[in-house]
Design a protein around this nucleic acid. Sequence first.
DNA 1: TTCAATAGTGAACGATTCGTTCACTAAATG
DNA 2: CATTTAGTGAACGAATCGTTCACTATTGAA
Lengths: 198, 198
Amino acid sequence: MTESTAGRRRGDDLERAIFEAALEELAEVGYANLRMEAVAARAKAGKASLYKRWPDRAHLIRAAARYKATAIDTAFEPSGAVRDDMERVMRRIAENQNGPGGEVLRGWVGELRPTSDEEEAEKVREAIEQPRIRVFAKILEAGIANGTVRPEALHPRIVNLAPSMLTQHFLMKGRPASESVIAEMLDEIVMPLIRARD
Amino acid sequence: MTESTAGRRRGDDLERAIFEAALEELAEVGYANLRMEAVAARAKAGKASLYKRWPDRAHLIRAAARYKATAIDTAFEPSGAVRDDMERVMRRIAENQNGPGGEVLRGWVGELRPTSDEEEAEKVREAIEQPRIRVFAKILEAGIANGTVRPEALHPRIVNLAPSMLTQHFLMKGRPASESVIAEMLDEIVMPLIRARD
DNA sequence: TTCAATAGTGAACGATTCGTTCACTAAATG
DNA sequence: CATTTAGTGAACGAATCGTTCACTATTGAA
């Protein structure tokens, strides 16, 4: 067994435990109140183990953001009913923001600066955005195939529009978009923009 | 003179000086590294004067956000050329994000939580969004008047779309949208959405 | 003009949290 | 079984927090 239940964990095993602890802690107290000591305690690890891996809170949260992003289930098969498909995925994203995923995003954004490590920032951003872009592109492609979506809707900025609006809403309001807000985004913005003109 | 150049300042006079100091400090070191002591020192004020007004950093920055929002020049007369008008205003917003305005936004967002004081959060949000909404509504109205914009484009979510995209870009990328990004937002999203169908 | 009330200053303080260090111990390696 | 590698837990100095207090400047009323 590499994953022993008792005893002292090491390597990736321990690292995962720390990430999970960080995410739980984050959901409870928020990034602004996140204490390294609390994360260590929750993970039943030594503080030194944290500082050995990341030089400070900001680095820990970046790593946690990437961990969280890759841990999210991203599988989705479009039905061809574009509005329904988008609504479903958008609700899933909003749900995810309502927990550690949201807090880790907020914390990451708070530490971002024009002077931050650009390369690392880009990786975090990609980890968050790419899976979403892929899903929405798939949905749009299905819509193009059945003639309900205009082909030019595959422009990156349009593909990214729905998730971007959700992020924007979450960051500015402090909580995820409700179902009715999602419906409005779809009916007033996204659908009119992608619909095939007849 | 209420605004004496030398001597000890009080009341609103002092408060403004503290806000200015906080904004400068914010632009230099970012919210994450903002020290109350540093703000006090820069304002040539006692730390006690800060804590007398706001219980902590989070409250100070909220107040600073509202101060900054009201201090921004918001006057704009639409020419009727909708795309040009929007581009001009969007560039102005991006420019503003490239300084204290951007840092104060980032810091505020970082402290927002579902458990925060909803009322105060709403006030900050309004102070930031309302002036923008008014300007874009004016631009759209001018466009509707000359027939280049469809009347339904006055929907709040559409009016708010351009500034929202700028905010989203700034928060996720860490820096304001460039001129070419602004052009893309207009050409791929906003203009197709508001254009009167012929 | 004087004087009391109000508001700000600056320094000091205990309490936290930070990030580091170190002696000790468990797990992996061979 | 011996050696190497990695983690633990406690202790530490430094930085920052938010508070307190004795002192001083400004204001406005007597």
